[in-house]
Design a protein around this nucleic acid. Structure first.
Lengths: 114, 114
DNA sequence: CCGAGTGTTCGATGAACATCTTACAGTCTC
DNA sequence: GAGACTGTAAGATGTTCATCGAACACTCGG
């Protein structure tokens, strides 16, 4: 019997921050990092809830990656949910754009990061 | 005879960066700082070339202030010119906005910084 | 020419922060 | 239950960066 992967597991649920309560400095700092920009861009190119944390092509280890997702959650940029052993992600496009209009569009633009 | 304050003094001219050549990361990092945000906001509230570097109400010493202006110049956000003993500033609104649309508007918005 | 005012540079300090390694806690399959 | 896989937590390390104090350079007014 394949147990249905549900989000209410025993694991500690990820702590989310409402974009409406995020300060300008927190948002800008979260976005002013090359690894996080890459995460946001890859995430924007995939459907919601289809990418697990480990599925991103970034040049850092698991621990650092986990840290970056914590920062993104704290800035109201990413929502996470547990699906069995993995933690899948969603970019909070509308909500974040309502709070900081244009910022996400800027990060997702064609401009070279570095 | 009151010598006319001119910009071609003997002092080393400030090094400017064209906003068109600024990377996304440089722009975001420059703007992700509380002191620099305050400088930008005060500068936006004054006419061009009317504010000298020392005329800003920020809680840092001269040395740090000079550093922050160097960063702002490097990000293509501020243009400087020497007028006698002081160095006066101008916010490069149009140029910077052409390169990073919406970013300046976000920084100048009503949102609380911290 | 001296002194006050303005801003930069240098060296040092301290605080964040990004990163890694290791260890641990879940989940799933066999 | 054993083992593979995924992600988090804790501790250590190194770097970046904001800041300061002091010294220096330049401008202007007596």
């Amino acid at each position: 019997m394949p147990k249905q992967a549900e989000s209410g597991g025993h694991r500690a649920a990820p702590v989310h921050t409402d974009p409406a309560e995020v300060s300008l400095l927190t948002a800008l700092s979260a976005v002013a990092d090359p690894v996080r920009i890459q995460l946001i861009r890859e995430l924007a190119g995939s459907a919601a809830w289809t990418r697990s944390c480990g599925s991103f092509d970034v040049p850092v280890g698991k621990a650092a990656l986990s840290h970056h997702f914590t920062v993104l959650r704290g800035a109201g940029l990413v929502e996470q949910r547990d699906e069995g052993p993995r933690r899948v992600n969603r970019l909070r496009r509308e909500e974040f754009d309502a709070r900081f209009p244009g910022l996400l569009a800027l990060v997702l633009g064609d401009v070279a990061v570095d």
